[in-house]
Write a protein that binds this DNA or RNA. Sequence first.
RNA 1: GUCCCCAUCGUCUAGCCCGGUCAGGACACCACCCUUUCACGGUGAGAACCGGGGUUCGAAUCCCCGUGGGGACGCCA
Length: 463
Amino acid sequence: MSQVRVRFAPSPTGFFHIGSARTALFNWLYARHTGGVFVLRIEDTDAARNSEEFLRVIYDSLSWLGLNWDEGPKVGACGGGELGPYRQSERGAIYKDYVGRLLSAGRAYEKDGAVWFRLLGDRHEVFDEHKKKTVTKVKTAPVVINDLIRGRVERAEDEDFVIVRSDGSPVFHLVNVVDDIAMNITHVIRGEDHLSNTSKHVALYEGFGVTPPAFAHIPLILKQNGPGKMSKRDQGALIEEYQRRGFRPEALVNFLCLLGWNPGDDREKMPIADIIRLFDLPGVNQSNARFDEKKLAHMNMSYLLELPAEKFVAAAREFFQRQAVPTVVPAALAADAAYFREVILLCQPKIKGIEELPAYTANFFAEDFSIDAKAREKVMAKGDPSARLRELAGALATADFSSDLALEETIKVMAAARGLGFGDYQPVARLALSGTNVGPPITGMMRVLGRERVLARLGRFVV
RNA sequence: GUCCCCAUCGUCUAGCCCGGUCAGGACACCACCCUUUCACGGUGAGAACCGGGGUUCGAAUCCCCGUGGGGACGCCA
C-alpha cells in the first residue's frame, strides 16, 4: 500500500481542547509510526468565527506539544505541500467543482435554495419524533465500516442531507469528504463522536465514485466530574492552560497517549520515540476514558524532576516572566541570574509543578516575608528556641558557607557540644530564615542566602 | 423517540482475539520505613471482572438479553 496520509482538521474557535489535542496526537503518532504524512487542515468555513489570532492558538498548541505537521499552512519549519490550500476558506472553487459533479450525476439536487445529497433507495414520508416534523425517509442499503479500532460497524443513513447551504456555503460533511479525497487521505482518525456521521461520509464517497479511506474512531475523553464528554468549559480542558501553568509538554503528551492506548506492558512513562515505535491503531481502546488531573500532575512532576538543570531554570524563568504581577516576581526577575539559578535548582527536587515556584521561592527574593502563625506556634512550643537561635548565629558567624556539607558539619559539631542534634536547630532556623516550616534543605537555603542575609534574618527574628 | 459505540479496583488500564493465572501495574487513599521540615523514594494494606441467562469439565475471556455509560440524529464543526 502507498504511504499513509493522515490529517488533523481543527476549527479555529479560539480554544484548543484536550480532546482535539489527543486526536491530533494519535494522527501524528500514526504518521510517525508508519513513516507517513501528517497533514494539518484548517476548517475555517465559518468566516464570522475565525481570525488570525484563533489560528495562532492552534499553531502554538501543536508546536508546544511537538506535533509538527508535514503539510498544511506554512508556519516556521512546518507546513507546505502540493495539495493545498490547506484552509477551507480558500478552497471554495474545489467544493463547487465537486458539487457540480454530484449535481450532473443526479446524486444531488436543489431544494429551498440549498443543495441536498440524494440517497439511493425507496422513499416514504414519516413523522419524526425528534425533529417534530414530517420527513422523507430513504430505505438504503446499510453502510459497512471496517473500523480499525472498533471492527465492523453497520449503519444505514436514511435521509437526504444538505451539502451546500442556501447562502452558498458548503457544509462540514461535504468539505470534509472532498478534502480527504483531494488530499489523498488514507486514514481518517477521529473522535468517536463522528462514528455516526461516517455513514453520511461513506455515502458521499460512493457518490463521488471514490473508495473511502480507512476509518479509526478513537474513544472520547470524559470530564472527571459529572456526566458527559469533556468540553472546553471543563476544568483542565484547554491546552493553553497547561502551557500557561508551566506543565512540561512531554508530560502532557505522555499522559494523553495513555488515555486509550498503552504499550501492552506496565510501562507508563516513556520517551516519545518509544511511543512512536509501539503505537498502532489496533492497540487503541474502545471505551471512553475519564480525565484524571492528579495522574497528569504526577506525570508532570516526574518529568520535572529529571529535567536537566539549565532547562529547568529556563522553564522557571519563562514562567516567572509570564506571571501577571505577584509581588515576588519582579524581585525574582531583578535578582542576579546566578542567584536565581541557585534558588531554582535548590527547589527543583521539592516541587510538584513549576507554578508552585513563585510562592515557594518568595522568601529568597524578599526580606519582608511573613511568619506563618501555625508554624511559629509549633516551633515555639518545643525546647528553647531562643537559645538555639543565639547558638546558631554564633556558630554561623564564622562558618564556611561554600557548601551544604560544611554548614551541616558546623551545626552538628556545635549541637553535639551541647548534647543536642541537628534536629534541635532545624525548625527554628527554618522559621527564622523563611517564615515557614516547609522548604528546601535548610543548609542549602543558608548557602544560597549567604552569611550576611542568614545572620540578619536570625538576628531580626523575634522569639 | 430512532440509530451507533462501549462496559475489569474510586480513576487510567493489563489480561479478552487463541476460555484453565492468588485477576497484574499506575494514579489517588491509608500505614510503616527513609529523613533535617516538606517532598521524592522504598515497603505494605484496602480496592474490580455491571446483572441474568446460555455454551463448556471449566467463562473476566465466547453468545444472547437486560441494565448502565457515551455519542449521533442542524442550512454547527
